[in-house]
Design a protein around this nucleic acid. Sequence first.
RNA 1: GGCGUCGUAGCUCAGCUGGUAGAGCAGAGGACUGAAAAUCCUUGUGUCACUGGUUCAAUUCCAGUCGAUGCCA
Length: 306
Amino acid sequence: MTSDDPLLVVVAGPTAVGKTSFAIDLARRLSTEIISADSRQFYQEMKIGTAAPTTVELSQVKHHFVHQLSIGDSYNVSRFEEEVLGQLEKLFTTHRVVVMTGGSGLYINAVCHGIDLLPDPDPVIREALKDMLATSGIAALQQELRNVDPLYALQVDMANPARLMRALEVCRMTGVPYSSLRSNKPRKRPFRTVKLGLELPRELLYRNINHRVDAMMEAGLFEEALALYPNRHLNALNTVGYRELFDHFEGLVSLEFAVTKIKVNTRRYAKRQLTWFKKDREYLWFSPEDMSGVMALPELMELTAK
RNA sequence: GGCGUCGUAGCUCAGCUGGUAGAGCAGAGGACUGAAAAUCCUUGUGUCACUGGUUCAAUUCCAGUCGAUGCCA
């Protein structure tokens, strides 16, 4: 990698830390565009509850991968990786730097380092495994995994049905152990990467989250969720901010309780994001206020100097 | 003012007839390869309101003080 190679600046961090406005500010300073790496802002029907960039924000900087899907579309990390790499190739013909921002750590990793080539889920097999879990319990999944992929059985969290089902699904589809297809080797990318993590004191972050949820309700989250309620079983809608309201529509909980629950679950989501990003030692951490600190990074100084 | 009830973890509360305390929620930490805003794992010491008394021993019994609350006036 040389400084002639184009640069991807990743702006990550927990939800409600201020990634959107920071990334827009940064992209404008660098005269470039934004790739969104947010697995829920992909869906055009989910605007308020995902805190997607507003129309004003979208008009300030060209965004990619925002609202490009409909909730019924099936999508996954692998497709995201492929499509973003394609988009970056185009953008790098006219830009020396591109900003990617979002809170979906797995998706960011897929773009930066790649993921192994594994089969997409087969709906029939996945259904069969769900049935198996429902009727025979997790022990049955664990047993099958020990038989077909003893190596992975030792590595995986055996208490996590989602992990077990995915592994078994791949084993059944390919006929070989899931673990034999996992290399976890980083791919070479034709660009350099700088990873920025935005961070706020926990207390402040949680205050932001609570306020933002209230703001979402004022902005019409209730109505947005109600309109999507008939589609509540879609994966896209298995999302904080929507499923709590669905519980309310079902008559299970009061509206007040649902809103409180959204706040709690959003805080937990933020915590999980922090755990994910903190583990990756490549991240450089900044306050969302500290744009000058970010602009002083050598990789960015060099871009703006010319 | 009188009578009663209550005062235990950030919150809601359990603690039978005395042996220094435990649940849910919140919170904290972690995992993570096509569901990832998903999915899963781990994690509960606090002057038991305060001050005295009884007792080998008091969160638990007794008295008083303070606070909360209900009914009566």
